[in-house]
Every structure is written in structure tokens, then in C-alpha cells.
Design a binder for these strands. Sequence first.
DNA 1: TTGATAATTGCAAGTAGTTGCAGTTACAAT
DNA 2: ATTGTAACTGCAACTACTTGCAATTATCAA
Lengths: 140, 140
Amino acid sequence: MEYVHDIISALSKQGYRLTPQRLMVVSAIENSEDHISAEEIYSQVVVRYPNVNISTVYRTLELLKRLGLVTETDLGGGRVRYHPADKGHHHHLVCQECGAMIDLDESLLGPLQDALLREHNFIADLRHLAIHGRCVDCRR
Amino acid sequence: MEYVHDIISALSKQGYRLTPQRLMVVSAIENSEDHISAEEIYSQVVVRYPNVNISTVYRTLELLKRLGLVTETDLGGGRVRYHPADKGHHHHLVCQECGAMIDLDESLLGPLQDALLREHNFIADLRHLAIHGRCVDCRR
DNA sequence: TTGATAATTGCAAGTAGTTGCAGTTACAAT
DNA sequence: ATTGTAACTGCAACTACTTGCAATTATCAA
Ligand SMILES: [Mn+2]
Ligand SMILES: [Mn+2]
Ligand SMILES: [Zn+2]
Ligand SMILES: [Zn+2]
């Protein structure tokens, strides 16, 4: 069985069209070492496909989010960032003062997720959260 | 002792100027029954102070956030919403599918806040969160 | 009261992201 | 291969929010 990117095969399986623009956006996300922004995706894609428009990047991200294939996270810095939903299950603590980021294991939010499901019948999307606050150094 | 809005007396105590624009923004927030947007604040203020600029509203909100006097929350709908930090301690579950909102007691996040402080020395700002996901009806 | 002065504001331009629409194209059916 | 069609894209205009800068003003000291 040939190798296909997870996201692309999921798109294909669900009947979405595999346009070159989408393939390149997906590839930028899957090849990114960490969290990537829409602008960064765009500037990668535009090199190989010069007349792509950034609204296509945003629309693709919207689709991938809606299908649960990528997560969108506000890590500060004025733009949200994306990464594959099934890659590196974890969260981040973000200091609002100095921008420091602390990685957090996903297990810390398990109990909360369970409680919300049990007590409110609500399926919380708690994959790759950014929790904002103050780190030790910026404590007042 | 005379009555002063909590937020105004806090501003004053910390040495910030009490401009008419600020007083009116604060008043709009404190008088709002629930969560209010920047645009809604602006449209209240502009009636009594016609040449106020919306950037002043945004800058005032930024200040009030930074001082911990108001909370900013993304409840969906394409704009964030504000309310006094010390009013109605609670959170919201927001369904990404249908927009339904379920109120949540603040106690549910106490254990998480404690764990983050204990295990990571991080003071998480978990006042008035919006947790996104799917409600029972939109479950798949 | 009356200045001095730094904080604050209005304005205009900028950034991140969204949307309506007309034209293009992936994909399926022939 | 050709063609029909809805999905998708590019484009341009728009929304929410931000920012640099010059003009205004709240506050304080004289
Ligand atoms: Mn991450
Ligand atoms: Mn609320
Ligand atoms: Zn910090
Ligand atoms: Zn729902």
C-alpha cells in the first residue's frame, strides 16, 4: 500500500477535491516542524504555485479545522497557528507578559474533558490548547 | 464613603487618567447585562461623545485587560466580548456547530489551576473561559 | 488660576482574516 | 477522450482590530 499523507487521504476519503492548492497547503502543514501560520503556509505555496491566493489558504485551513484534521491555536503574536491534529498530543502554557511557552502533557486535561462529557454531555475540543497566564518570572 | 464603579476607582488608584472616553467605556461595560463587544461599547459611547474614535475603545479595553479589570472571551460570532472581571464567576461551553452556550461554574477549573501552579509554577488566567466543542444535539 | 508635561486621543493607514461573486477546474459519467 | 456540473479558486471589497504620529488634555506643581 502506497504512502499518502494522513490528511490528504482523509480529504480524499470524504469526497473533497484534491486541488494542487490544497495539496500544497496540507504538505506545508505536515512538513512543518512546529506550529505554522497562514502567512507562512502561503509564502511556501506561492513559490511553487505563484498565483495562489491567500484566501484559498484560509479556506483550506477552515476546511481542515472543520474536519478535525488540523488544530488552530492562539499562541500569541497576533496570528493563530496550525498543526496536524494527530501529531504531538500536548498543550502550551503561554505567559502574557514575556511570551514564554511551557509544554504541557495532554493528560492534564483528561479529567476536565471527562467531567464536561459526564456532567454536561459536551464534547470539548481540548486538543492542543494554549492556556494564557503568567510564568514564575513574571509573577507579581 | 461615596459610591464609585469598581473599575473606575481601580484605574484612579493606579494613577491612570480618568478621561471622559474611558469613563464612558467603563460605564458601558459595567452596565451591560452580559458580554459586550467593542463595537457595541463604541455605539453606546458615540451617542453622548460623538467624536470618540473606536481605536480609543480598543485601547481602553486593552488597558482594562492588562490591569485584570475586565476579561476578554471569544464566544464565537467573529468578535470577542468583554465583561467585568469580578462579576459572575463562571465559564461557557460553546458548540462550534450550532452556537449553543452552556454555563459552567468556575469550580470546575479549580483543580486545573491548582495543578498548573503546583507542577509548572504558572498562574493560569482561567477567569471566564469559553471552551469550544460539540453539544449533545450536534454530536456525531 | 496658570502653565508645563507626559499621558491620552483622533486620525489615517496597516494587518489578519472573511466573504460574495464570476470564472475555472476536478471529477464522474458517458 | 469529451462533456456536464458542482466544487473550488482568484479577486476585490470588507470586517475586526492595531499602530505610528501629531494634536489635545488630565493632572500636578507653582
Ligand atoms: Mn504545540
Ligand atoms: Mn459569561
Ligand atoms: Zn513570563
Ligand atoms: Zn450544538
